[in-house]
Amino acid sequence: MAIGVGGGGRNLSADINVTPMIDVLLVLLIIFMITLPLSRRAFDVQVPPEQKPQEKQPTQSSQIVLELRADGSYAINNEPTTLDQLDARLHQVFDQRPAKLMFIKTAGTRKYRDVIQAMDIARGAGVQVIGFTPAEPQQQGGP
């Protein structure tokens, strides 16, 4: 027959066309694999080596020490401040300082969350290097 167009080849196939689906799945897979290691975020905190008493730096007075006290208050170089004012105070302190270095001294009863929050605010205020002060043995009493 001359008009048997596709007469024999018309096999109705019930299969779904899976090729686009596989494309999508592969892309998903690759996205998963790439974002897993890349998505991590962290703060870098300097852990200065323990200083021997005679090596005490003479520049001690110019250091900025943010203190998280046991009673929930904050202090910058012994000057009490509040959490709300912390950002403004840190901006005030660090805007004119070339050395964006701050130490954090935390009472043992404060939550780790508060420390991260304080570091977060400090980063936001332009602090580039954050250090933990060495623990003072007499203050490690616990609650």
Binding site: R41, F43, Q46, E50, T106, G108, Y112, M119, P134, P143
Partner: peptide, 27 residues
């Protein structure tokens, strides 16, 4: 995040003595 910092401080001291210089606190 709900840990007392004293516990973290203990870890930091141990790390300090082991020669760790930078601590990356994952957030």
């Amino acid at each position: 995040q709900d840990l007392n910092f004293a516990r973290v401080q203990e870890a930091v001291e141990i790390a300090r003595k082991a020669g760790v210089r930078v601590l990356g606190t994952i957030t």
